[in-house]
Write a protein that binds this DNA or RNA. Structure first.
Ligand SMILES: [Mn+2]
Ligand SMILES: [Mn+2]
Ligand SMILES: [Zn+2]
Ligand SMILES: [Zn+2]
Lengths: 141, 141
DNA sequence: AATATAAACGCAACAATGTTGCATGGATTG
DNA sequence: CAATCCATGCAACATTGTTGCGTTTATATT
């Protein structure tokens, strides 16, 4: 199962013209296996001993994966980026996120579509939207 | 005009049981005069020579003003808090913001009301929403 | 399989933003 | 005027992320 994800991850990386290093494969496999958006720290901790990476290398690998649209970055009010594997609908970059104000977990809200019946001030141009719903998750609520 | 804002700011501070120091009055007057949400740096630079504050004092004054609901903090993907005076509708904390992806200015979108016809996963509880529309402002677009 | 080479990597140093502890100063109150 | 306590300034620290640069390594080429 996890091994299968490694193969998938390796394929995804090679198909984007990148070198399939143990670090990149391990990171992407972790993100593919996890439903929640993960912080740099959480990813680091879940990496097996055999694939311990330097902090900087981890940042650069995540940046590369995001640039290839294999994962996406999620902003948050705690000044920490979270990363999440792109699956199907995620690629639109128009999905919202939920953040638990108690345990800080972040999940994607795939079903939430944002209506655009509003308008901006004159001269302003829309490009993208960033929506975070905050509250308590099932465990904390 | 700016003097009038100082008097207003002084009133607002005293009515909340705080000491009306030159720093707090100056900060609040600046925020009351400015339409955009301002960063810590921008506020610091606009403070007159006579009211130069320590970085930490400025942070603490902003924290105090936000705690009294005289201003509100705006989160952003650049990891910098912005501050904006509360006026009327702002107090609801349910207004959205626009951020220019070119010049990084942030304004409040008072008119944008967020519809709640969506639902969260089972067990999840809604508390508040954070919405940022991104694009180009009138100057940059 | 050996080699060449550009892409990844590791380390150190740096940068930006914000926080904490603590001693000092000064406004407010009695 | 004295006592109090809120606010301030300074130093040190914390967190997150970035940059420069020399070294290693995955991959293509021979
Ligand atoms: Mn997402
Ligand atoms: Mn606002
Ligand atoms: Zn939770
Ligand atoms: Zn702009």
């Amino acid at each position: 199962m996890l091994n299968q994800l490694h193969i998938t991850a390796e394929d995804m990386i090679q198909q984007n013209g990148g070198r399939a290093t143990a670090g990149r494969i391990g990171i992407l496999a972790i993100l593919l296996a996890e439903q929640q958006a993960m912080t740099h720290r959480e990813i680091e901790q879940r990496l097996p001993e055999a694939v311990q990476l330097d902090r900087v290398t981890l940042y650069r690998a995540l940046e590369w994966l995001a640039g290839k649209n294999l994962i996406h970055k999620v902003t948050s009010d705690d000044r920490v980026w979270r990363y999440h594997a792109n699956r199907g609908v995620h690629n639109t970059h128009q999905h919202a996120h939920f953040k638990c104000m108690c345990c800080a977990q972040v999940i994607c809200l795939d079903a939430l579509t944002i209506e655009r019946n509003w308008h901006l001030p004159t001269g302003y141009r829309f490009q993208e939207i960033e929506l975070t719903v905050k509250g308590l998750c099932a465990d904390c609520g």
